[in-house]
């Protein structure tokens, strides 16, 4: 990328970040939201790694004849952030799977509609839900 000075890189990265962010907040499908979060975070990683780059630099591993190295610190930070990202994805997907088992759908609109229907029949529903969740807990053993 070092052949392209200026802030154009950063502007494209901003577009990528916002594309991911848009998927997260506009979509009603839970799995697609998680993909959006992944896109959003991955694009932030590009921002960090771009910061560490230096013109004419090399990867920060000592080698003979190299005097200019890219900064290792953003690399370290993003290694951690990638791990955090995949951890979040795993937890989010597990939740989506359990939601699908409990509601039969992963569409936000359908879930809130079911919750609203439950609210209108307060009393009977709370025990029914508890039973539904209890059976799926049994399953998981």
């Amino acid at each position: 990328m070092s052949d392209l000075p200026g802030i154009y890189n950063y502007l494209i990265v901003v577009f990528l970040m916002m594309a991911g962010f848009y998927v997260v907040i506009s979509q009603g499908n839970l799995v697609k939201k998680l993909v959006g979060l992944g896109l959003f975070q991955t694009s932030v990683f590009i921002l960090y790694i771009s910061m560490g780059n230096v013109i004419g630099g090399a990867a920060p591993i000592v080698a003979e004849g190299v005097t200019v190295y890219s900064s290792p610190l953003p690399h370290v930070l993003i290694l951690t952030a990638i791990v955090v990202g995949v951890a979040t994805t795993a937890v989010g997907l597990s939740l989506a799977v359990r939601i699908h088992e409990a509601y039969g759908t992963v569409e936000e609109d359908d879930i809130t509609a079911q919750d609203r229907a439950d609210d209108e029949t307060v009393g009977t529903s709370s025990t029914k839900d508890a039973a539904a969740n209890a059976t799926s807990t049994e399953d998981a053993r």
Partner: peptide, 26 residues
Amino acid sequence: LFMNLDAVDVAFTEAAVGAGVSTVLM
């Protein structure tokens, strides 16, 4: 892209985790 930007460790991890583990999980 990370390879291009001299971040070899990050590129390695992103390929293994982002393209590999995350995709399989999804």
